[in-house]
Nucleic acid binder design. Structure first.
Length: 596
DNA sequence: CAGAAACGGGG
DNA sequence: GTGTACGTTTCTG
C-alpha cells in the first residue's frame, strides 16, 4: 500500500495506530486502513541515580522500564526508556517523573504518538509499504464503518519498500456563497455553488440555479448541494482533496452550513466526518484517510510574492490572466441571472480548475519533502521550513541513537530572543551608476562552514589540545575536529545525496525521470539551505547562540578576506551582503597581471 | 518610539 | 492531542 496518512484511536483503554493507505485493484484504487495494536508511547529519563530512579518509577502506573544506551552531546549515557500504557498518560506523568529526586532530566516527552510511530518503524508517508495481518470486518473497531474500505489488523511490523512517486488522484473544489453584506456570514448566507475539478478531467458545478453548460448539475436546495458535494467526493474517491484557503474558509463554511441544515459531511475513508485541528490560531480541515491540502499556505511558503490571491498566484505560475469576479459583486451576478449568472458559473469552475493546475505544479515538491522528512503529507503541507528541518533531525537522531534536545520553555524562549547572534557582513552600496560589475558569491556559505568547521552542540568544548579544534574568529569558540558532529554529519549527508541525484539527473535521458530527480534534488537543496538556521532560530531544539555566532563570524571573516584579495587584483567592492559581493574592475589599481 | 494589535487568504 | 502559527505591517499610547 501507499501510506497516505496516520493517526490513532483508543479501544479498551489502549491506543491503536491506524495507517491510512491506498492500493491498486483491477477495479481501480481501493482505500485501506491497517491497524497496529502493538506500539506503546515512551519517554527517556536521564537518572541521577539509576537504581534509585527505577525504584521511584515502580510507584508509577507505567507499562515498563528499560535501560538503554544513547548519545547525548557527544557522550554515551545510560538512560531509562519509560513506556506508558496510553499516550494520554504522558502529559501528566512526565511532569511528576521530571520532579523526582533521582531524575536529572526527561527527554522526547512531547513527540506526537503517530510521529513517534513513523520514526521508530522507519515508515515514510507517500512511500510504499508492505503490511501483513488479518482482515477485520468493518464495524469491529470504533470509527471504522466505511463499507468500501479494506480493514486489516497487522500482525508484524510494516515493511517499507522502495518506490517511485505514487500516482495520486487529486480532486479540487471551491465554493461560492451568497454575500449581500461583504464577506458571507455562515449563520445566514447560503452556499450557492460548489465546483469540482480533478486531475482525471472531472469538471462539475453544483448549484440550485439552472444553466445550459454541460458541467452544471442543478439541484433543488442548499441541502441538496451539500449532499451532492459529499456524494461526488465519495464517488470520485480521491487521494488528495485540494482547495485554496480551504482550511479557514471553504471547509469551515461547509461545516457550519451543514451543521445548520443537518447534513452529515462524512467524507473519511473510515466513514468519519470532517474534523478541524487547531494549529495555533488557525485551523486545519481534516478528512481521515484522504489528504486535504490547502494550497494557500503551500504557495505562501514556496513562492515569494507581494500578494497571494488565487489570481496573482495563477498569473505568477502560468503567466496568464484569470477571469475574475470581484468578491463584492458575486451576489449581484447571482441575483441578475442570465449572462451574469452564466459567467459566475464559469468563474466558479475556473477557480476549481486553477487550483488543480496550481496543485500539479506545487505538490511534487511537498510530496518529495514528505518522503524525505517522513512526516504526514497533511502536516508537511502546513509546516514551516524550520519545523521540516526539526522533524528531519529528530528522525536522524533516532537512527543514530542520539537523544533529541528539549523544546525551549516559554522562559527559555524569551531569554533566547533577547540576545541574537550577529548577522552576516553587509557593506552599504556605493552610490552611483557602476559599469563593468563582477559578482562573487560563496555557494552555500553557512552549510559549508558548519561542515568544514564541524559546528555542532556535541563538538563545542570549553578547552582542547593544540590543533584538535577549529577556533572561530572574534569570540574564539572551540569545535572539536573529531568526531563528526550530529548536525554537520546530517547536512553533509544531505549535500552528498543531492550531488548524487544531480549526477543521476544529468545522466538520465527519460524526461519523466529527469523531472523527478530534479524535484528530489530541489527538495534536498531546500532542506540544506534551511538547516543552517537551526542554531539561530529561538524555538529550535538544536538552538545554540555559540554555534550561530561562530558560523556568522566565520562567514564575515571569509567574505572580508575574499574582498581584500580581490582588491589586490584591482576589483573594487561596491556592495556586499553575507555570502557575496559586487565589485567594479579598476584597471589603475590592478598591480597584478590579467584579472580574468 | 515601543509594544500591542491586526493581518493574511476566502465571498 | 506526547499540541496550541508566524512573520510582518499598522495602530496606539
Amino acid at each position: 500500500m501507499v501510506l497516505l496518512d496516520i493517526d490513532y484511536i483508543t479501544e479498551n483503554e489502549s491506543a491503536i495506530i491506524r495507517l491510512f493507505g491506498t492500493f491498486m485493484t483491477e477495479k481501480g484504487p481501493k482505500s485501506i486502513i491497517a491497524l497496529d495494536k502493538n506500539f506503546l508511547p515512551y519517554i527517556y529519563v536521564i537518572p541521577i541515580h539509576s537504581e534509585r530512579c527505577r525504584e521511584e518509577l515502580a510507584e508509577f502506573d507505567v507499562a515498563r522500564v528499560e535501560q538503554v544506551a544513547r548519545r547525548d552531546l557527544g557522550r554515551t549515557v545510560q538512560v531509562l526508556k519509560v513506556f506508558f500504557k496510553h499516550p494520554r498518560d504522558v502529559p501528566g506523568l512526565r511532569d511528576e517523573i521530571a520532579n523526582l529526586s533521582s531524575v536529572d532530566e526527561i527527554r522526547e516527552y512531547d513527540l506526537p504518538f503517530y510521529r513517534r510511530y513513523l520514526i521508530d518503524k522507519g515508515l515514510f508517508p507517500m512511500g510504499k509499504l508492505e503490511v501483513h495481518g488479518q482482515p477485520v470486518a468493518t464495524g469491529e473497531y470504533p470509527g471504522c464503518p466505511a463499507e468500501d474500505t479494506y480493514l486489516l489488523e497487522i500482525s508484524e511490523d510494516p515493511v517499507p519498500l522502495e518506490s517511485d512517486f505514487p500516482e495520486l488522484k487529486i480532486l479540487s473544489f471551491d465554493i461560492e456563497a451568497y454575500n449581500p453584506k461583504g464577506m458571507p456570514r455562515a449563520e445566514e448566507d447560503p452556499i450557492i455553488m460548489i465546483s469540482f475539478s480533478s486531475n482525471e478531467g472531472l469538471r462539475k458545478v453544483i448549484s440550485m440555479a439552472q444553466c445550459d453548460f454541460d458541467f452544471v448539475k442543478t439541484v433543488a436546495t442548499e441541502e441538496d448541494i451539500l449532499k451532492e458535494f459529499v456524494t461526488t467526493i465519495k464517488n470520485e474517491n480521491p487521494h488528495i482533496i485540494l482547495g485554496y484557503n480551504s482550511d479557514n474558509f471553504d471547509f469551515s463554511y461547509i461545516n457550519e452550513r451543514a451543521k445548520l441544515l443537518g447534513i452529515p459531511i462524512d467524507l473519511g475513508t473510515d466513514g468519519s466526518s470532517l474534523k478541524f485541528m487547531r494549529r495555533g490560531f488557525t485551523n486545519a480541515a481534516l478528512v481521515k484517510g484522504r489528504v486535504h491540502v490547502d494550497l494557500y499556505p503551500v504557495v505562501r511558503r514556496y513562492l515569494s510574492m507581494d500578494r497571494y490571491t488565487l489570481e496573482r498566484v495563477y498569473w505568477e505560475l502560468f503567466g496568464q490572466d484569470k477571469e475574475d469576479i470581484p468578491g463584492d459583486e458575486i451576489c449581484d451576478y447571482w441575483d441578475n441571472g442570465g449572462l451574469q449568472l452564466a459567467s459566475l458559473f464559469k468563474y466558479s469552475l475556473d477557480d476549481a480548475e486553477s487550483v488543480t493546475k496550481i496543485g500539479e505544479k506545487m505538490l511534487p515538491l511537498t510530496m518529495e519533502l514528505t518522503r524525505i522528512v517522513g512526516q504526514p503529507f497533511f502536516d508537511v503541507a502546513r509546516m514551516a521550513t524550520g519545523q521540516l528541518v526539526e522533524w528531519y533531525l529528530i528522525r536522524k537522531a533516532f537512527e543514530t541513537r542520539e537523544l533529541v534536545p528539549n523544546k525551549p520553555s516559554a522562559a527559555e524562549h524569551s531569554h533566547r530572543r533577547g540576545k541574537r547572534a550577529a548577522g552576516g557582513y553587509v557593506k552599504d552600496p556605493e552610490k552611483g551608476l557602476h559599469e563593468n560589475i563582477v559578482y562573487f558569491d560563496f555557494r552555500s556559505l553557512y552549510p559549508s562552514i558548519i561542515i568544514s568547521k564541524n559546528v555542532s552542540l556535541d563538538t563545542l568544548v570549553e578547552e582542547c589540545e593544540e590543533g584538535a579544534c577549529h577556533v572561530s574568529p572574534e569570540a574564539g569558540y572551540l569545535f572539536l575536529k573529531e568526531p563528526r558532529g550530529f548536525v554537520p554529519s546530517v547536512i553533509g549527508n544531505v549535500l552528498t545525496e543531492r550531488v548524487r541525484l544531480k549526477t543521476l539527473m544529468y545522466q538520465a535521458t527519460d524526461e519523466r525521470e529527469i523531472q523527478v530527480l530534479n524535484v528530489q534534488q530541489e527538495a534536498l537543496k531546500r532542506l540544506a539551505n534551511s538547516m543552517y538556521g537551526v542554531y539561530g532560530f529561538s524555538r529550535f531544539r538544536w538552538y545554540s547562540l555559540e554555534c550561530a555566532d561562530a558560523i556568522t563570524a566565520w562567514g564575515r571573516d571569509y567574505i572580508k578576506k575574499t574582498m581584500k584579495k580581490a582588491e589586490k587584483f584591482g576589483f573594487k567592492p561596491i556592495y556586499a551582503d553575507t555570502d557575496g559581493f559586487y565589485a567594479v574592475y579598476d584597471r589603475k589599481a590592478d598591480s597584478a597581471s590579467d584579472p580574468s
